[in-house]
Design a protein around this nucleic acid. Structure first.
Length: 116
DNA sequence: GTTTTGACGGCGG
DNA sequence: TCCGCCGCCAAAA
């Protein structure tokens, strides 16, 4: 049993939040960081996702940056690119960014009351 | 042990 | 609106 190190906790928390993102919607690194209470550490979310890159149960392709850009697409080495995965869910992609990003954005903190 | 890098974001100019 | 700097924290060099 791995010791309950906080970094591991953070890693797991990020995975859990990403799992909550509905298909066809996207969220951002910053939104996740904010939801976890580590507001200024959006980079750590990227770090955690990188660790989870090979976990099929974590839809990491639904996480984009604050501009809706697919900044992490280079890390999806699988057969299906990040772009393809999003398009398969009905998310429109143009010029490496999510079309109608503002509409498709799903923010954890905005749904926490709904979840609770 | 120190320095650089990175799937980011906010703020100032 | 576009550009650059700074802060954030962990991992890799």
């Amino acid at each position: 049993m791995t010791p309950g190190t906080e970094r591991n906790r953070f890693f797991e928390d990020v995975c859990e939040v990403v799992k909550l993102v509905p298909p066809g919607r996207v969220t951002t690194y910053g939104a996740i960081a904010h939801y976890l209470g580590t507001k200024g550490s959006a980079r750590l979310v990227g770090w955690a996702l990188n660790q989870a890159a090979h976990r099929s149960d974590v839809p990491a392709h639904r996480v984009v940056n604050r501009n809706g850009l697919l900044t992490g697409k280079h890390h999806f080495t699988g057969e299906q690119s990040m772009e393809a995965r999003l398009m398969a869910e009905g998310v429109e992609i143009a010029d490496n960014k999510v079309v109608h990003f503002r509409q498709l954005l799903w923010e954890p903190h905005r749904h926490e009351e709904h979840l609770l």
